[in-house]
Every structure is written in C-alpha cells, then in structure tokens.
Amino acid sequence: MTRWLDSPPVLGILLSIPAIVILGGLLAYPLLLGVWLSLTNTTLGSAGQFVGLSNYLAIAQDPTYRGAVFYSLFYTFFAEVGKLALGLTLALIVNQRFRGYRTARALMLLPYVAPTVLSALAWLWLFDPQFSAISWLLTKMGLIHEYINFIGAPWPARISLIVVNIWRGLPYFAIGYLAGLQAIPHELHEAAQIDGASGWEAFRRITWPLLLPITTILVSFSSIFTLTDFQLIWTITRGGPTDATQVFTTLAYQKAITGGQLGEGAAIAISPVVLMVIFAWFVMRSVREERSVE
C-alpha cells in the first residue's frame, strides 16, 4: 500500500488535489458559471432564465457600454505605450553603474509594491480641484494660471487616470527590461563600439532587437490586467464624471453589484475576453520560444 502510494503517478496526482480543488471550485467553475449567467436574465435575489445572447445585444446598443469599450481600449493603449517608453528609459538609466544605483533600483519599485487603492487615494488628494499641490507647484513655476480640474471634466479625468496607471506599472516594465538588459552579453556592445557605432545605433540594432521577446511578454501580460483594471479607476473617479472614465470592470460592478443585474453585469465582465485571449496567445507563444532557446 505505501509502495503504491509512493509511486510517482499516484503521489503526483494526490499532491495535486488541493490545487485542483481550489482552482476547480473557485476559479474554473465560476468562470463557466459566469458564461452561463451572461446568457440569463438573473438579478440579485431571483434566479434567471436562459435568454440567449440578448444581454450581449442589449449592451451593444447601450451608449454607456460603448463608451466603456472606447475608454478601456484608449486607457490600455496609452498606458501601455507610456509604461513601455518610461519603463525602458528607466531601465537603461539604472543599468549603468553610479553611486547609489542599488538604492535607486530598490526605490523605483515602490509604486508597484504599495497597495494600489492607498496610493490612488494620495493621487485623489493630489488631484483636488482646490487644494492640489501639483496645481500649486505649476502655478508657482508660472506654467499655468488657474488650477487644473484634474478629474472634474471628461478629458482631464481620462488623461489623469492614464498617468496614474503609468505611475503604478512602469516599475514592472523597468525591472523586466533591466533583467533583459543584463542578459545581453557585453561583447556585443564592445564589438559595436569597435566598429564605431554610435550609442543610438547600438541601441537600435543590438539592444532593442534582443529586448523584443521580453517586450512581448511584458506588454501582453500588462495589457490583460490594464484592460480589466478596477481599483485605480474606482478609487479616483468611480467611472465619472458622467461615465467618461467608465471601463469594462467598473461598469460591470455598477450593473451587477450596485444595480443587481447579474446577467447583464456578467456579460459586460466577459466581453473583453476575446481581446484577452489574443494577448494570452502572445504570452504563451513567447514563453515557449524563450524555453526552447534555453
């Protein structure tokens, strides 16, 4: 009996049971249940009936949902571009040797480590229409003449949230790129220098191509979670003003939790999955390539 239990296949399956129970019961099953819910007219307190695709058809007609699709994509696109550019630049800076480079590398991760809701509260206070310290500073520098209405008007609110998302996510890109940069053999850059390549040329022809695989992983991963972001937007604007910063998740929350329309909420929450599958496919592919190279 003990021998049988000790054989790799039996023991392997036994050891996997806890993970299967947790992930099966609280992840895979809810995922399927979510698909089913989105095909019913379930509300809080009353079991629904199968209604086919009518939730999806209803949200497709809804201007608020269309607005949320627009802003989710706008938010994700510009936040990713910003995180990539600023994260890569930061990685290139801290990849050099200077006094205190270790401290700089440790400190730069703080926005990523700190709980998002709590730092978002600090941003909310920094965005105050009357008492904003950012406006105060810009006024003193003579750059602006009246205080900025950061989150009170649609476009400033949309842009402010993207800035905060970049703030939180750029350290993740910086650390990923730093690991990528350190994996590039020194000889390549030395050879380029001997051949008389300028710094920019060396970056464009050697560094950047070698960083492409890690870029795919970073951008795809980050896009999945930026597209379904909630905490930051909910804390700072709650989707406002007048639904200008509504995204998939905030709208699903309002429909399902505040409004009790579970079926429609589930449809809204599930609708970005098509895009996420595309990102996930990119992740899987690049991770596999990376493995086969090793």
Binding site: L31, L37, L262, A269, P272, V273, M276, A280
Partner: peptide, 24 residues
C-alpha cells in the same frame, strides 16, 4: 497539460470572475 492549465489560471483576471464567484 496540468502545468499549462495552472498557467492559464494565472492570467484569468479577478475582474471577470467576481460576479459568478459571488454566486458560488
């Protein structure tokens, strides 16, 4: 395949789970 399935679980965001998980 079990390892791959676990990896896929990693990229399921809470945002698409919170409504049905509440029912559970």
């Amino acid at each position: 395949p079990f390892g791959t399935a676990i990896f896929l679980c990693y990229i399921v965001p809470p945002a698409i789970l919170f409504i049905p998980l509440g029912e559970v």
